[in-house]
């Protein structure tokens, strides 16, 4: 109970505002704790437990099979290939969504007239659900019905993501990145506005050009934001993109856009193989955990707070 904070001191000379109630800190933490337990710890524990089970076809009973779900997965070379696919997808989604968002934020930061309208419009796509975003991109780029695909073919581009794995991957990366740009934009803009103007003005007086100021002052001072967004974007690409994949490619052609989380979704919810799906979730959880630790150990060192 030593960690109860300011409430533990009862000295009369204390000038700070203190709360003597020992329960209050816990009470204030309760909402967040409840949310974390109900929406993270409980499902995670369920996934761990289910990953050791083989449920029957109608989900009425299950057999305990130890680690055979994991054994099955790691013997499947298509599953292993899906790690590579996920890495490519995540790298480009993060790169595209963060760099475009940074560009927009820098530009929006300089806008004087109608800044509010620009900002609102740039933030808008964040409200679009992934599956809906997928369908919208499909309406533009699906080779049979897509409006833009029609003009691409008209000017002679051999556009067929239905059979060309590289084009399919490009398409899902763009759709997934587009959806995340808004979120990144918001944080980058806030980060930019927190940089003291005096620093930039001083550099300008010293004769530093626009690019030089950005590279040596603005970008380093944005590094906490960039680091935070890097973690968030990787988690986004890993976990929240199955709706986009499902509506746009179903993981195809072949397995060229089958990322790990899509396989979790399709094996679990379409194929009803909950044991394997749970085992895949556990693996995914471990992978993202490791990635986050790596980021905090090695990349965070270069962040200036």
């Amino acid at each position: 109970m030593a960690c109860a904070g300011p409430a533990s001191s009862g000295r009369p000379m204390e000038k700070r505002v203190t709360f003597d109630n020992r329960l209050l800190p816990y009470l204030l933490l309760t909402p967040q704790l409840v949310v974390t337990i109900v929406f993270f710890f409980w499902p995670a524990a369920q996934a761990l437990y289910q990953s050791l089970l083989l449920p029957d076809p109608f989900g009425l009973g299950a057999r305990f099979v130890w680690f055979s779900n994991f054994e099955y997965l790691f013997n499947d070379r298509y599953y292993l290939q899906s790690f590579v696919t996920t890495a490519v997808f995540t790298f480009f989604v993060t790169l595209v969504s963060m760099s475009v968002a940074l560009l927009f934020a820098v530009m929006a930061d300089q806008v004087i007239k109608g800044a509010g309208a620009y900002k609102t419009l740039l933030i808008w796509p964040y409200a679009v659900a992934p599956a809906v975003a997928g369908v919208m991109w499909l309406f533009m780029f699906q080779p049979s019905i897509g409006v833009i695909a029609f003009y691409m073919k008209a000017v002679g581009i051999d556009w067929n993501p239905v059979l060309d794995g590289g084009q399919a991957m490009t398409l899902v990366i763009l759709a997934a990145a587009w959806k995340q740009i808004s979120y990144n934009f918001l944080f980058f803009l806030a980060g930019l506005q927190a940089i003291p103007k005096s620093l930039i003005e001083a550099a300008a007086i010293d004769g530093a050009g626009k690019w030089h100021r950005f590279r040596t002052i603005i970008f380093p001072l944005l590094s906490p934001t960039t680091f935070f967004l890097l973690v968030v974007n990787i988690v986004y690409a890993f976990f929240e993109t199955f709706g986009i994949i499902h509506t746009m490619t179903s993981g195809g052609p072949g397995q060229s856009t089958t990322i790990l989380v899509y396989k979790v979704y399709s094996d679990g919810f379409v194929g009803q193989d909950l044991g394997s799906s749970a085992a895949q979730s556990v693996i995914l959880m471990v992978v993202v955990g490791i990635l986050t630790v790596i980021q905090f150990r090695f990349i965070e060192r270069r962040v200036h707070y």
């Binding site: 179903s250 993981g251 195809g252 052609p253 397995q255 399709s266 094996d267 379409v270 194929g271 193989d273």
Partner: peptide, 9 residues
């Protein structure tokens, strides 16, 4: 369902 996905691939 999964077998059909494999066939598609």
């Amino acid at each position: 369902d999964q077998i059909r996905a494999i066939i598609d691939e």
